[in-house]
C-alpha cells in the first residue's frame, strides 16, 4: 500500500458518497446514467469473485480489500435500487440511451482473447478490467445529450478521474519498488480509462470558459 493507491481508493469512496448524497438530498437522480451504474455493478461482481475464496483476515491488505470490495458492491447495488425504484420517476430514461450491450460484448470478446491464464476466474477478471475502462461512457453520453452539467455530477466524475490518475502514479511507484509480474492488462486499460476522463475534463473546462453547453466530440 502506498499513498497514491490509498488516495485513489479514498477518492473512489468520496465519489460514491457524492453520488448517493446528490440522490438523497435532491430526491432525484436526474442527470445520472443508470447504465453506467449497471456497468459498475457488472464490473464489481465479476472482479470481486475472490471474496468467496479469500480469507479476509489473511493479512491487513486482504482485510482492507475485503471491506472496500463489499462497500463498492453494496453501494453500487443501493445506487441502482434508488435509481430504479425509489426515484424512478426522476430518472432521465429518454436520454440515457447508450447501448451498453455493445460495450459488454466487446469487453467479453477482448477478455476471451487477452487474459493472463485460461481459467474462468481470470477471464472474468480481464472482462471486468476491460469493461471498467469504458463504464463511464454512458454517463458522459447522457451529459452530452442534456448539455447540463450539474456541479455535483461533475464533482462525481472529477473524483473518479482523480482516482484513476492516482492509480497510474501507484503503478509507477509499484513498478520501481516491487519486483513482481507487470500487470500490462490493468495498466493498459487503466490508462485508456484515465484518458477518457482527461478528455472529458478538457471539454468540460472549455465549455465552462466559453459559457456554452458541453459538447463532446
Amino acid at each position: 500500500m502506498n499513498i497514491f493507491r490509498l488516495g485513489g481508493d479514498m477518492l473512489h469512496v468520496v465519489s460514491i458518497f457524492l453520488l448517493l448524497l446528490k440522490i438523497q438530498t435532491s430526491h432525484s437522480c436526474a442527470g445520472l446514467s443508470l447504465k453506467t451504474q449497471i456497468l459498475y455493478m457488472v464490473v464489481f461482481s465479476t472482479r470481486y469473485l475472490d471474496l468467496f475464496f479469500t480469507k479476509p483476515w489473511h493479512s491487513a491488505l486482504t482485510f482492507y480489500n475485503t471491506i472496500m470490495k463489499i462497500l463498492f458492491l453494496s453501494s453500487s447495488a443501493y445506487t441502482i435500487y434508488l435509481m430504479q425504484k425509489r426515484y424512478k420517476h426522476t430518472y432521465d430514461k429518454v436520454h440515457d440511451t447508450f447501448r451498453i450491450q455493445y460495450l459488454i460484448a466487446a469487453a467479453a470478446v477482448l477478455a476471451l482473447i487477452f487474459h493472463l491464464r485460461l481459467t474462468v476466474f481470470e477471464i472474468l477478471w480481464a472482462f471486468s478490467v476491460f469493461l471498467e475502462s469504458v463504464a463511464i461512457l454512458p454517463q458522459l453520453f447522457l451529459l452530452q445529450e442534456t448539455g447540463e452539467v450539474e456541479n455535483i455530477t461533475s464533482h462525481y466524475i472529477f473524483c473518479l478521474g482523480g482516482y484513476r490518475t492516482l492509480y497510474i502514479f501507484n503503478w509507477v511507484w509499484r513498478y520501481f519498488t516491487e519486483h513482481r509480474r507487470n500487470q500490462w492488462l490493468a495498466w493498459g486499460c487503466g490508462t485508456v480509462q484515465t484518458l477518457i476522463y482527461a478528455d472529458f475534463f478538457y471539454y468540460y473546462i472549455l465549455s465552462r470558459k466559453q459559457g456554452k453547453k458541453l459538447r463532446l466530440p
Binding site: 480489500n65 509499484r174 509480474r181 500487470q183
Partner: peptide, 10 residues
C-alpha cells in the same frame, strides 16, 4: 511464479 500486482488492487 511471482504474483500479479493488480490482483491485490481494487
Amino acid at each position: 511464479p511471482p504474483e500479479d500486482t493488480a490482483k491485490d488492487e481494487l
